[in-house]
């Protein structure tokens, strides 16, 4: 296979940015997107990284981006649906605008990118889609009702799309990270994080390499019989 073409959402910071550096280093052609232009520079990324400014919930912008990818590359091998937003608050104190934002980015955005990617991947009868779940869903964490519910929806999307896309040679899997020290959790009180880490078999923060290790496994050509699965980190 030529240099794999990989699309990663939410690449302006955190895990998305680290994934760009990881796959550029592995020699993939990396396409990223986020609501804003990226402010970072990754060594070796020049010529191997292309950035689109798009909100993952904006169907017109997303379809235009996929149309452009199709015209430029004629295919897409991998999608990593990393873009996501969290909300840590008691349900009684969660504004509906927050509910719409979380569901929009985490559920609608994931659905839209899966749908458009599958349209591109099906032509080559090959594709790997990786979605992002969270340990907050199986742990049923208080204060994360809408975030955990949105990721429960992502798990269901993953499992059903795995069945729908299987005929086309496309696998769909999800990774459920533990807390990783990124902006996503910066507003969560320390005692909450400690209590969460204590519920894991291995009581530490997740590291970027824990995440990339699982994604690398899902992306392998040899993983063509692995689909509809969710791997939670940390042992929960």
């Amino acid at each position: 296979m030529d240099k794999p073409v990989i699309l990663i959402t939410g690449t302006s910071k955190g895990i998305g940015k680290a994934l760009v550096a990881h796959y550029v280093a592995l020699g993939h052609h990396v396409i990223g997107c986020s609501r804003n232009a990226v402010e970072w520079k990754i060594e070796g990324a020049q010529g191997n990284y292309q950035h689109y400014i798009a909100d993952v919930t904006d169907e017109v912008a997303v379809k235009a981006m996929f149309s452009d990818i199709r015209k430029q590359y004629g295919r897409l091998d991998h999608l990593i649906n990393n873009a996501g937003i969290a909300s840590m608050n008691h349900s009684m104190l969660t504004p509906l605008t927050t509910v719409h934002q979380v569901l929009g980015t985490n559920v609608v955005g994931t659905f839209l990118f899966c749908r458009e990617s599958a349209k591109l991947m099906q032509k080559k009868r090959y594709g790997r889609i990786i979605n992002f779940a969270t340990v907050a869903t199986p742990l049923k964490l208080e204060g994360e009702a809408i975030y955990a519910a949105s990721k429960a929806a992502v798990i269901t999307l993953t499992q059903i799309m795995a069945k729908e896309f299987g005929e086309y040679g496309i696998t769909v899997n999800a990774i459920g990270p533990t807390p990783v020290q990124t902006d996503l959790i910066k507003s969560v009180p320390k005692d909450k994080i400690d209590s969460l880490l204590n519920r894991q078999a291995i009581k530490r923060f997740g590291q970027f390499h824990d995440i990339s290790n699982v994604i690398d496994f899902f992306l392998k050509k040899e993983s063509d019989f692995v689909t509809g699965q969710v791997i939670f980190l940390g042992g929960i």
Partner: peptide
Amino acid sequence: TLIVAVEQAIEDELGLA
């Protein structure tokens, strides 16, 4: 499969999304 292929071909050949 046919619908996806036709949508893409209409876009490529007629410029209509």
